[in-house]
Nucleic acid binder design. Structure first.
Lengths: 245, 245
DNA sequence: AGGGCACTTGCGGGAAACCGCAGAAAATGT
DNA sequence: ACATTTTCTGCGGTTTCCCGCAAGTGCCCT
């Protein structure tokens, strides 16, 4: 038995015990397994135990995995984290990619993956110090950074702002842009999300959409946004409202 | 061993096997347990096996529990269904309440409930034919039907319509109302969601919200809407777009 | 019958969203 | 260094949203 310590952060008890077994089976060099049931507790345990190896769920209440990972990485960027999540939503993938420190080893494995895949990912990250990202997740990564229907970070920021309900003027103020620039950005977001009335269906009884609201819905349905990401964005907005202005 | 047949519909393999054990332990009179891994397969299995006893998850991809339950209840309204869900979001609770046939026995238990609670619910519904609804869920039910900050069904419809991105005119057309009536409804929705600029913070640099978009976000953050409900609503909208007009 | 109460509808107007056009500014490529 | 592309910005105009005011309908209550 070695002296590696592994921290498991997962709110679902069934998944937690499953992870526990998987870790013990995959890592004979692992001497101690610590468990936490929420993002907040995960941060505390990571700090207290100086764990450099963490397996973490993304979707947790009240403090989710991305927030926990961010503070953990801020304190010790060398920490290796394997994210184990139900979904490959673009909002999650982008959220993780945004906070990974340079050169840090991390992994992203879906819960639907086989035991063997999970075992390999555990060994690759914790022993070989090598990144492992699930194929499906790679797919959404390509999409988001590719240029075909890709959203730039700027697009994403502003899409989030209209999702939060800000006016054009407020967005301009927050992002330090002119009113017209914001509106330009919006127009190209509308185009990328394909929310413009189809020319084919012509006039007559064509139902009109409110582009602003329709864009948000479309982004939600395409998993480009999700409620977790919006909660985070809302918190950031509240911060900004108090400091600025 | 009796001849009761129980159908389990749950996409997570861990939860599925946990449910399987719980059913066998709680119901000695249960002779057969059938498993399905999605809403669609659940419908097929229910039809094929004529099962009158179902335990079902709500959040599933691609066809969720509410859609499956609706078609199952349409075919045989006497079916007893126990919903076993992670969340007590108003959107889920309302979605279930909307499709329960008159006099049908059903249950709503959270996954965070104890084994004992699950056991009792299984026996109450499948043996005693009696409704069992978790305390937390009752809470959100009260909220939604009470009048304090309660949303009428009409409010909810129209809230959903703006979430889908329809214009006032389109909503008026769809719900057979005048333009002004829709706008009146919107105003009282805004009030109930409390999205109006606070009079206290006064003018100056107060950031303005687009009420329409802000209302949707607020509803999402309060779990009054969720993406599952919006997917269903989007499908209904597409149906309407093809038939009407 | 009359007085609330909830809901609906019309009118009018200020504010915001949406967008074409065109010039300035910055980033990019060769 | 120059040309090219992308992004940002201002102006003007149409449409939609947001809402105060007022009048009409139907229901329940005493």
């Amino acid at each position: 038995m070695g002296d590696m310590k592994v921290l498991i952060v997962e709110d679902d008890p069934l998944h937690r015990s499953y992870l526990h077994e998987a870790v013990v089976a995959a890592l004979p060099e692992c001497g101690t397994v610590i468990e936490a049931v929420s993002g907040g507790e995960g941060e505390i345990q990571a700090r207290a135990n100086q764990t450099a190896h963490i397996v973490m769920d993304l979707q947790m209440q009240p403090r989710n995995g991305i927030e926990a990972a961010r503070t953990i990485w801020q304190e010790r960027p060398a920490t290796r984290i394997l994210f184990w999540s139900n979904y490959a939503d673009e909002a999650y993938v982008r959220g993780v990619a945004r906070i990974v420190p340079d050169g840090a080893a991390y992994g992203y494995v879906l819960k639907s993956a086989s035991e063997e895949r999970l075992r390999l990912a555990l060994r690759s990250i914790f022993v070989e110090n090598q990144c492992v990202i699930d194929r499906e997740v790679r797919g959404t990564q390509q999409m988001s950074f590719g240029r075909s229907v890709g959203f730039s970070d700027r697009d994403y920021e502003i899409l989030m702002d209209i999702a939060l309900g800000l006016t054009d003027r407020a967005i301009a103020q927050r992002r330090r842009l002119s009113l017209r620039s914001v509106q330009n950005r919006l127009q190209q977001i509308y185009e990328k999300l394909d929310v413009y009335p189809t020319a084919g269906s012509a006039e007559g009884g064509d139902v009109q959409f409110n582009l602003r609201a329709r864009a948000v819905t479309t982004a939600l349905l395409r998993k480009l946004l999700n409620s977790g990401a919006m909660e985070r964005a809302e918190a950031e907005l509240q911060d900004w409202l108090e400091t600025a202005r």
